[in-house]
């Protein structure tokens, strides 16, 4: 029983990181029909921005995080939207998919060439301790990851549902033409989606890197998991992506513990196929949302 609790708790914590990546992915997908194959790299990169500030410029921790957040907003938000996605709108289609794949190669190779190929330790402002919960052990960082992700996704949901800007963002994503007529600045709302995605990616990066280290290739598996989480949960609802992320994190651990290690990666994929074929709006999604 304590083993069960242990792997579920750990899975929730890992899943919360997946959820952050998945939420951003879903936002960008909705806002600009962009399936971002570089999403995993978007989570990998901000940690290196912080490392550059801390180790190369000799800045303190908080300044490093602030710098990384700003750099992410500028490069993963503004530049990605302005230089890659915008010129290919409104109907990016496959060339846009290919372009995001190339972006993923570019980010990986740049980090490897200009910072290093080896995994790097990453500082955390949080203490190292652990807590006992009914026979299972959870580290303070894991617990913080989980709560912080829940808070961020909760806050984001409130923002999208309760604020004027948030509602405009949703309207712009669901039917840009109608939104335009109603006086919504669709281009600006789309930009916001990209900025929110960049901020979420940076935040996920700060949370994940102290435990899982910073490495140029970290995005490879993370990106795929983010897709799966977003689709399984339901990409047109933010909380869908959250649930998807947590579900994938927990299932992965349960399968590895009780069923098979060799095929632990298979279950999320099977789930993905099943959801797409029989419930394409996702477990928590609404059927009315825009289908892609």
């Amino acid at each position: 029983m304590s083993q069960f609790l242990q792997v579920v708790l750990s899975g929730l914590s890992t899943g919360s990181i997946y959820a952050l990546a998945a939420v951003g992915f879903a936002l960008v997908w909705q806002a600009a029909q962009t399936v971002n194959f570089a999403q995993g790299e978007f989570v990998m990169l901000p940690a290196f921005f912080a490392l550059v500030a801390i180790h190369w410029f000799g800045w303190p921790l908080w300044a490093g995080f602030a710098f990384a957040m700003l750099a992410s907003l500028a490069i993963l938000g503004l530049a990605f939207k302005g230089l890659v996605v915008q010129p290919m709108m409104p109907d990016g289609g496959l060339p846009l998919v290919i372009a995001t794949m190339a972006v993923s190669i570019l980010l990986k190779e740049s980090v490897k060439t200009f910072y290093g190929a080896e995994a790097q330790p990453f500082p955390s402002p949080l203490p190292d301790g652990t807590l006992q919960i009914g026979g299972a052990v959870i580290s303070i960082r894991d617990l913080f990851d989980l709560l912080a992700s829940l808070a961020v996704v909760g806050g984001l949901t409130l923002f999208l549902d309760r604020t004027r800007t948030g509602r405009q963002m949703q309207a712009a994503a669901q039917s840009p033409a109608v939104a335009e007529i109603l006086g919504v600045d669709v281009a600006r709302m789309t930009l916001y989606a990209f900025l929110v995605n960049a901020a979420l990616a940076a935040f996920a990066s700060f949370l994940v890197s102290p435990t899982y280290l910073a490495k140029f290739s970290n995005g490879e598996s993370l990106g795929l998991v983010a897709f799966i989480a977003a689709i399984v949960g339901g990409f047109n609802r933010i909380r869908g992506a959250l649930v998807g992320g947590l579900l994938v994190g927990v299932l992965d651990n349960l399968v590895a513990t009780y069923v098979t290690q060799e095929y632990r990666a298979a279950l999320p994929l099977v789930l993905l196929i099943a959801v797409i074929l029989w419930r394409p709006q996702g477990l928590l999604g609404d059927a009315e949302g825009r289908t892609v």
Binding site: V7, G249, Q261
Partner: peptide, 20 residues
């Protein structure tokens, strides 16, 4: 006998199996 994926991040299942 616990195999893991290359690049795997979460080793909680692996360690819990060894412990068990």
């Amino acid at each position: 006998d616990v195999p893991s994926e290359q690049g795997q991040v979460d080793f909680s299942a692996d360690v819990s199996k060894i412990k068990q």
